[in-house]
Design a protein around this nucleic acid. Structure first.
Lengths: 118, 118
DNA sequence: CAGTATCCAAAGGGATACTG
DNA sequence: CAGTATCCCTTTGGATACTG
């Protein structure tokens, strides 16, 4: 048998990592927002508001700030009249691509198997 | 240019799929619980309670029920005194393996890059 | 357009105690 | 052991209105 404390230390790190990831992605909206920006490359506030069904401007604003704080999203104010704001993924944000793809595929399978109907 | 309505229909399906997946996995605990059961193959209620730092028995009970309802987890009552309850992943639950692995790895990278410290 | 501010009902979830 | 039940404070987030 291996050293139990080493084994537990690794497990703890794994759990921490999962928590870190989920903290960043959690909630009803984050992944959808990221997916929207990612899909269109650059996306304006009001566009995302339309893409993500059901989200309110208050929520969108809050979520985007959190994504910015986590350096997943970059916000650029364009000097137009009235102002336009572009959101795009940072390089770090783009590393979520795989996870989003996996989640999308898994969600489709899950719907087929459990929820029924497509 | 491709047919715009086909394009939008696909996008909608993708968003729905992401939502389905997130509905199932959302919250502070679900992935951690799944990860714990997955890691040990079979796991008892009180063991999971210990594995997942900070969770209360009330929460764990609620989350496990939801995971069962989504057919990700199977619950087996063993005829011991007092009762023992085993939780294990269903085949469907095991299909989350990839996502969990990806989340773990992404979480570690994220911690290095953004949160700082390991 | 891209947000902020405020109000407020509803849901979430911890602490504690209890049960088969 | 494996949960339930209850109390109760906190957070969440929708609706609406307003601003630069």
């Amino acid at each position: 048998m291996e050293c139990a404390s080493e084994f537990l230390k690794d497990r703890k790190k794994e759990m921490m990592a999962i928590n870190d990831a989920m903290d960043v992605l959690n909630g009803k909206w984050k992944i959808c927002i990221i997916s929207s920006i990612c899909y269109y490359n650059k996306r304006r506030f009001s566009d995302i508001l339309n893409d993500v069904a059901g989200i309110s401007n208050k929520m969108l604003s809050k979520e985007l700030k959190e994504l910015e704080a986590n350096k997943l999203v970059k916000r650029t104010v364009l000097d137009t009249q009235p102002v336009t704001v572009q959101y795009e993924l940072t390089d770090h944000g783009k590393t979520l691509q795989t996870i989003i793809t996996n989640l999308t595929e898994w969600g489709m399978e899950h719907r087929k198997k459990i929820i029924g109907k497509n």
